[in-house]
Amino acid sequence: MITQIVPTADTIPVNWWWFQILLIVTFLLHIILMNFILGGSLLSLWDSFRKKPAIEGKSIPTLIALTINLGVPPLLFVQVIFGNFFYTSSVLMAGPWILLIPILIIAYYGAYIYVFKKTSSPLFSKISLLISSIFLLFIGFMLVNNNTLMLTPERWSAYVDNKSGWMLNLGEPTLWPRYLHFIIGAIAIAGLGKTLFYHFKKDIDTETKQHEKSRGMKIFAFATMIQVVVGIWFWLSLPEPIWKFFMGGNIVATIWLMLGILLALVLIFTASRKLMTLTVSLAAFLLLNMIITREIVRHQYLKGIGEPSNLTTTGEIGSLILFLFTFLIGIALIYYMIKLIFKPKNTVI
């Protein structure tokens, strides 16, 4: 019955693994930046009510630009291997989905106002930050809705009574733990971002530097503690066959998830001991671990109704080569431009 309404998938040019790997890598980069802006906005908001100056907040607008940019490739690759599911769920919740665009524009401009008006009009600045934060949270909520709705075609039949595109996935048991898992994670990683920001900040006194760095670490450690609990709640809210898959059902998946949980516990320890380099490296690996876990969950959900390995491949490799070639040149030129900033004569002027 379900398979009858799942749209037929289009063909892909090369083996689906290409897209899966590109999806994981680019989503990792996107999620790190997203954590900085969402968690960073919430932390800046918290600070602004405690009347504490938080200079790291001024980098939010630039980070938003990069977050949106890095959101493009994972959105593209997910449409390549799961497009028939993703487009359908998007249409079902088309109203809020298209609202994300104006809301993102407002949140983005709000972040600029927060930075530009910080001294000249502090209240306006704070209100802007508040609105931006609420809007970013709204965007996250809709992304979680869509990403769960695409995995549950059995709910799609509700379309019969709701064709105007306002169908959210509110009955989904994983919705809230999943959403919370993203928010808490964002706060944790933003704490780590704060530490890094002050670590590399040059024109600042040592005392503030140390204080803020250590605060960032504390935020990370504390948020990670909550995150472990929320994570386990999320895990157990998954449909039985899927959570069991990670509890002995599949030995590799089980070890993989256990590794993640273990890493989180280790990270609480390293962060409380203020071991910055180790914490940052392990946290990056933990994020990768979680993103891969997320992909495994997705494949389990769609098992039998939409496995990317069943997609027809045309084998047209030329465009892949074009992309890889452009990608290398692009990376090289971005590296070149960033190096230009740090050229001695460019930092002095």
């Binding site: 749209p7 289009d10 063909t11 892909i12 040019p13 897209f19 590109l22 990069l66 940019n69 890095l70 493009v72 490739p73 593209l76 690759f77 449409q79 390549v80 497009g83 028939n84 487009y87 359908t88 998007s90 249409v91 088309a94 989905w97 298209i98 595109g165 465009s319 892949l320 074009l322 992309f323 452009t326 990608f327 692009g330 971005i334």
Partner: peptide
């Protein structure tokens, strides 16, 4: 949202075109 089938067709035919576009974008 309005033309999912056409969008899917454009995305699948030109996925690496879009990906190349993204490189220029960033």
């Amino acid at each position: 949202l309005v033309q999912p089938a056409a969008t899917s067709s454009l995305i699948h035919n030109f996925v690496f075109g879009w990906a190349t576009e993204w490189v220029f974008f960033i």
